[in-house]
């Protein structure tokens, strides 16, 4: 387990990344729709379920054939516990956007997948009074496990990482229309307060999710609560939330989605512009230096 202890500058900064990652052939136990074009696939994989932490991702590939060829990076939705309370299964939620995800949605219990992970760095585990999670569309997927962790309901990682339960955990969740609203009950059951906004007003407050974030931050300030933001969704939304966080001097992490070929740092496809200590920027790999970054470090 020493391969990543000799990292050079800027290489594999996530200390718990990679050495725990393995490739597995797994069997699907469930593949169910959550909302329009939105699915949740569940498979047994104790090795990943025991070690994964919120914000990390997995690569999923269809085992047979060469088209689609590449795996897709998909965030952990949550772990699944067995009868003894041990994490043995993994849930991944996904939006059908292309050939691979369309084929994935056609798979059923008993079908197999090639999976490697857990990958990437995951969200910080620092204590805070009020964790505010901001999601746009399918960007809600990395937040179920994180919300459950901060609500004090489950621990993640091996050894399990310690998170001081927050006094409040809120998901500000922006969707296009009500039919894309996915997993609201999952969040509620995990101890997360869900506040929905929609583009057309078909569910929740009509308008942008940032307005809801402003309202939650005002309430937290009135209660004297310390706050951290985490955000995942379309890039313009994340940029807006990052600006809002900077203006209100609230710590903010974003989870980025970029096209990846390998997910493990080999291909150098998934780069984003990350601010360097000297003030300029450099391309950094989302897969090994992210996917979670401090918002202030991203050059949008």
């Amino acid at each position: 387990m020493s391969n990543c202890s000799t990292t050079g500058p800027g290489e594999l900064a996530a200390s718990f990344y990679a050495d725990a990652a393995r490739q597995h052939r797994v069997t699907i136990t469930e593949n169910v729709p959550l909302a329009r074009d939105t699915w949740r696939v569940r498979f047994e994989c104790p090795a990943i379920a025991r070690t994964v932490v919120p914000g990390q991702f997995l690569m999923l590939r269809l085992p047979a054939g060469n088209d689609p060829l590449l795996a897709r990076p998909l965030a952990l939705y949550d772990t699944v516990l067995d009868a003894k309370g041990q994490p043995t299964g993994v849930d991944v939620a996904y939006l059908v956007v292309g050939k691979m995800t369309a084929r994935l949605s056609e798979l059923r219990a008993g079908d197999e997948l090639d999976v490697w992970g857990p990958l990437g760095n995951g969200f910080a585990a620092e204590p805070v009074d009020h964790l505010v999670m901001v999601a746009g569309g399918i960007g809600q997927t990395p937040f179920l496990a994180l919300g459950r962790e901060y609500a004090g309901r489950r621990r993640y990682g091996n050894p399990p990482r310690s998170v001081v339960p927050a006094k409040a955990v809120t998901l500000c969740y922006g969707v296009r229309t009500v039919d894309y609203l996915a997993g609201e009950q999952d969040f509620a059951a995990a101890g997360v307060e869900v506040r929905v906004t929609s583009n057309d007003g078909s569910v929740g407050r009509q308008g942008l999710v940032t307005a809801e974030v402003d309202a939650v931050l005002d309430e937290a300030a009135a209660a004297g609560h310390s706050v951290r933001l985490v955000c995942c969704g379309p890039e313009p939304m994340m940029e807006a939330v990052a600006e809002l966080a900077a203006a209100r001097q609230v710590a903010c992490q974003v989870s980025l989605e970029t096209p990846m070929a390998c997910g493990i740092g080999a291909c150098f496809s998934c780069v984003v512009k990350v601010r360097q200590p000297e003030g300029d920027w450099d391309y950094k790999r989302t897969c090994v230096e992210g996917p979670v970054f401090d918002a202030e470090k991203i050059v949008w």
Partner: peptide, 9 residues
Amino acid sequence: GYAREMAPF
């Protein structure tokens, strides 16, 4: 990569 990335596999 620089091989280090592939060592787990």
